[in-house]
């Protein structure tokens, strides 16, 4: 069975299952044989790691730095990963937690605040939900997706967005509303429960 980055990307974005890919084990083995296949693992886990880190640090720039560190470290050490049936994401979360703790320790040394790593409990369900939401943005109709990304990822104002895409502010608001509504519906559908 051959996976290309393209098919995996489609699979990841279209995935409705919140859990790990059933063939994750094979992807890991492929990446261990040839690190070029690491791209598949990255595609499948980027949102999870980012969501995990962002929930902990709450800051976009720090989340990006940490996410980058986590994946670089995972790539370097992929050969040492031993498959024991635990999702690959758990390993990534562990790397991420260590990175966050390291960073916090560096901060501690500078500002003498007590270790904040202990004050956070990992919450995989919430992380998984958040990651799923991020991926679902990719499934929105293009104009809604564009507005959602500009608004939430690029943190632009309605006015900036309207100027940039050449639509009225009302139209942008409408696209944002429809996007959010779509996301809510899709999240609800996939959860199988209504979140009122």
């Amino acid at each position: 069975m051959v996976y290309t980055i393209g098919t995996m990307a489609r699979r990841a974005s279209a995935s409705t299952a919140p859990d790990r890919e059933p063939d994750e084990h094979r992807l890991i083995e492929a990446a261990q044989r040839d690190t070029r296949h690491f791209a598949n693992l990255y595609e499948n886990n980027f949102e999870r790691v980012y969501a995990f880190v962002f929930r902990r640090v709450g800051d976009r720039h720090e989340a990006e730095d940490l996410t980058a560190d986590v994946f670089h470290q995972a790539l370097r050490n992929i050969g040492r990963f031993e498959w024991r049936g635990v999702p690959f994401a758990a390993w990534l979360y562990k790397i991420a937690a260590n990175e966050i703790a390291d960073r916090a320790n560096r901060v501690v040394r500078q500002s003498a605040v007590s270790d904040p790593a202990d004050s956070y409990e990992p919450c995989p369900d919430a992380v998984e939900n958040r990651a799923r939401l991020y991926r679902m943005v990719d499934t929105l109709p293009p104009d809604q997706r564009r507005v959602i990304v500009m608004r939430f990822a690029e943190e632009k104002s309605i006015r900036e967005i309207a100027a940039q895409i050449g639509r009225t502010e009302g139209a942008v608001k409408q696209l944002q509303f429809r996007g959010l509504q779509n996301l809510r519906l899709r999240m609800g559908e996939n959860d199988g429960e209504a979140k009122a």
Binding site: F38, A39, Y42, E43, F46, E47, Y50, A51, F54, R55, R60, A63, E64, T67, A68, F71, H72, L75, R130, L133, Y134, V137, I148, V149, R151, F152, A153, E154, L180, L183
Partner: peptide, 17 residues
Amino acid sequence: LRGLPRPSFKARLAADL
């Protein structure tokens, strides 16, 4: 969605990797 990662970041990290 406040934590939505920037697609440009995702692409850049993929390239770095």
